[in-house]
Amino acid sequence: MLKHLHTLKGHQNPIYTIANGTKPGVIYTAGNDKGVVEWSLDTMAFVKVILPVQTSVYALHRYNNLLFVAQKNGLILVFDLNLQQTVASLHFHEKAVFDIRTIPSKNELISTGEDGIVAVWSLADYTLLYHFPVINNTVRTLALSKDEKEIAIGSKDGVVRIYQSADYSLVRELSGHTFPITALQYSPEGHQLLSGSRDAQLKVWNLPDYSLQQNIPAHMFSVYSIVFHPTLPLFATCSQDKSIKIWDSKEFKLYKILSLEKNTEGHLHSVNKLLWTPDGKHLISTGDDRQVMVWDFS
């Protein structure tokens, strides 16, 4: 199902985030290196550092030709991939920004992080439209529902909070995890929300009522990323336990484990982020071992 194709090397420090480029075969990575790196999957090689930054980068998010870069110092840079230059700097958060998402139907960007506050930005002129507190502590992850009407927010207190995107009002709280929420993802069909935590559990919540469908002891340590395949009924998770796992998204059965401990190719340390290429042919993984691993899917 998945076979190790190549390992991209060059980062000197842990890598925290990945994003697809505007063109097929282009990806971007960033972490504790103080730079956003462009790679080519066609040549399996380093291309260039597209953007130097002052502090660690915890999140990358691409929307059309824009790449949003969220940093440890609270600054969010907006980099135009066509112009190859920074077109805006978003100043609000005073602590690290851990996640960013666009809401296309509202032409808005939302950001959150260590300050426990969600900020809402206009994509038209990058002005701060609104902000609201979630908790008096870290918010780690965001997810947007398929219809863009609801936002799931995962926090350090182990609670997943659901907000309406229309007015950012809190509509429900999902309790059950015993440690901080570290990963959230809505299913492509819009029928479920998946949450991962430092408790190593993967929870499946049914929509629209968010009833708990299933609890899966998915990993040995924190679940750091959940990514659905673009076209097929499966998804991948990764963890602090150094493993990547492939799951059936209908019955939530485990298909495959990629880990050195299972005698496959794998990462030496925590796997921090996963990404499917838009065509679904490759899974990209990265982590604390400073490696970007490319997996061929067939």
Rank of each mutant, 00 (worst) to 15 (best):
M1S: 12
G10K: 03
Q12N: 03
N13S: 05
P24V: 08
Y28C: 09
T29M: 04
G31F: 02
V36S: 09
E38S: 13
S40R: 13
D42E: 15
D42M: 05
T43I: 11
A45R: 12
K48Y: 05
V53R: 11
A59F: 02
Y63E: 14
N65M: 12
F68C: 12
A70P: 04
G74H: 06
I76H: 03
L77D: 12
L81Y: 03
N82E: 14
N82R: 02
Q84A: 15
T86S: 07
H91Q: 10
H91L: 11
H91I: 15
K95L: 13
A96Q: 08
F98V: 06
I100K: 07
R101P: 07
E108A: 01
D115T: 14
G116C: 13
I117N: 06
L123S: 09
Y126A: 11
T127M: 01
L129I: 01
Y130C: 01
H131I: 03
F132M: 05
V134N: 01
N136G: 15
T138W: 12
R140A: 07
L142H: 02
L142M: 10
S145I: 08
S145M: 09
K146T: 15
A152I: 08
V160G: 06
R161Q: 04
I162A: 06
Y163V: 11
Q164E: 15
R172F: 06
E173N: 13
F179I: 03
I181G: 13
I181M: 07
T182C: 05
Q185T: 12
Q185L: 03
G190R: 02
L194P: 00
L194N: 01
S195R: 04
D199N: 05
D199P: 03
L202V: 02
N206F: 00
L207K: 09
Y210K: 13
Q214I: 02
N215S: 10
N215A: 05
H219E: 00
M220W: 06
F221S: 09
I226M: 01
I226L: 09
V227K: 11
V227S: 02
H229I: 09
P233Y: 01
A236W: 01
T237F: 00
S239T: 04
D241T: 07
K245Q: 10
Y255P: 03
I257R: 12
T264V: 03
L268W: 03
S270I: 03
V271Q: 02
K273G: 02
L275V: 00
T277K: 07
L283K: 14
L283M: 14
L283W: 13
D288M: 09
D289I: 11
M293Y: 04
